[in-house]
């Protein structure tokens, strides 16, 4: 097994998802099969090979430090599930 049910639950927590108990086994099986498959990458020796983070090798894309108009409070909040006092409202955050 590449991944256990406990691992799956841990990853779900990191991703802010929940897995229903009745789905856990099937999901773990699917994830295990996929992780088992991708293991084939280890057949390749990649010693000294550079990791590729971008499809096109480029560097330095900048913008000038120039103001652009904001979209406005109304636009900013138009899709908010809950809003009030010009802010997005969320369940109380306890630090």
């Amino acid at each position: 097994m590449k991944i256990s049910q406990k691992d799956v639950e841990h990853v779900a927590r990191l991703a802010r998802l929940t897995v229903a108990p009745e789905e856990l086994e099937a999901l773990t099986g699917q994830m295990d099969a996929i992780l088992g498959y991708v293991d084939k990458l280890n057949e390749l020796d990649t010693e000294g090979i550079e990791a590729m983070a971008h499809a096109v090798p480029m560097s330095n894309a900048f913008r000038e430090d120039e103001l652009k108009p904001a979209i406005g409070i109304e636009r900013a909040l138009q899709n908010a599930p809950v809003a009030g006092d010009e802010c997005f409202t969320v369940p109380k955050v306890i630090e």
């Binding site: 990458l41 990649t46 090979i49 990791a51 590729m52």
Partner: peptide
Amino acid sequence: YYLKAQKVRTL
């Protein structure tokens, strides 16, 4: 996983 995949991407 991730880093290995990126290296294979280079190949």
